[in-house]
């Protein structure tokens, strides 16, 4: 697998949520390489930017959901994906697990939850890249 960039792609169709997540990522000293609101945009940006990590919302605007986008990105780019979903329904979780996500966060994501999870996943990803 080719090398990945040290940046994070944020995918959420709600501008404010995407923005909040971006702020928190930047607070941690990481780079946000872009935000996408649809599955197609997300795949295209991931292919272009090759981010190490993707924060993926489940419900997206337009055709396809977060799992579709995550599967495609996983296949073509190999980024780690953290799902952020407002739904805890078994059907949704089953679908998310198809992609073997690095982590799942449930909205509302609060306080240090995001930082903790992102830090752990980032470390694992960096170790993979080094290995």
């Amino acid at each position: 697998m080719s090398t990945l960039e040290d940046c994070v792609l944020v995918v959420d169709d709600e501008f404010l949520i995407a923005e909040t997540l971006s702020i928190q990522i930047r607070d941690m000293g990481l780079t946000v390489c872009g935000t996408a609101a649809t599955a197609a945009d997300a795949i295209a940006m991931a292919k272009a930017q090759r981010p190490r990590l993707v924060l993926m919302d489940m419900r997206l605007k337009g055709a396809g959901d977060g799992v579709d986008a995550a599967l495609a990105i996983h296949e073509s780019v190999g980024s780690k994906v953290i799902f952020i979903t407002a739904s805890r329904e078994p059907a949704t979780l089953e679908r998310i697990n198809m992609d073997h996500p690095a982590a799942i966060l449930y909205k509302p994501v609060f306080g240090r939850q995001l930082q903790t999870v992102v830090r752990d996943v980032w470390a694992a990803a960096a170790q993979d890249a080094a290995g």
Binding site: E14, L16, I17, E19, T20, L21, A86, K107, P108, V109, F110
Partner: peptide, 11 residues
């Protein structure tokens, strides 16, 4: 509701 709360939290 949850999505909205997340939005409020972001704001």
């Amino acid at each position: 509701v949850k999505n909205n709360l997340q939005v409020i939290d972001g704001l």
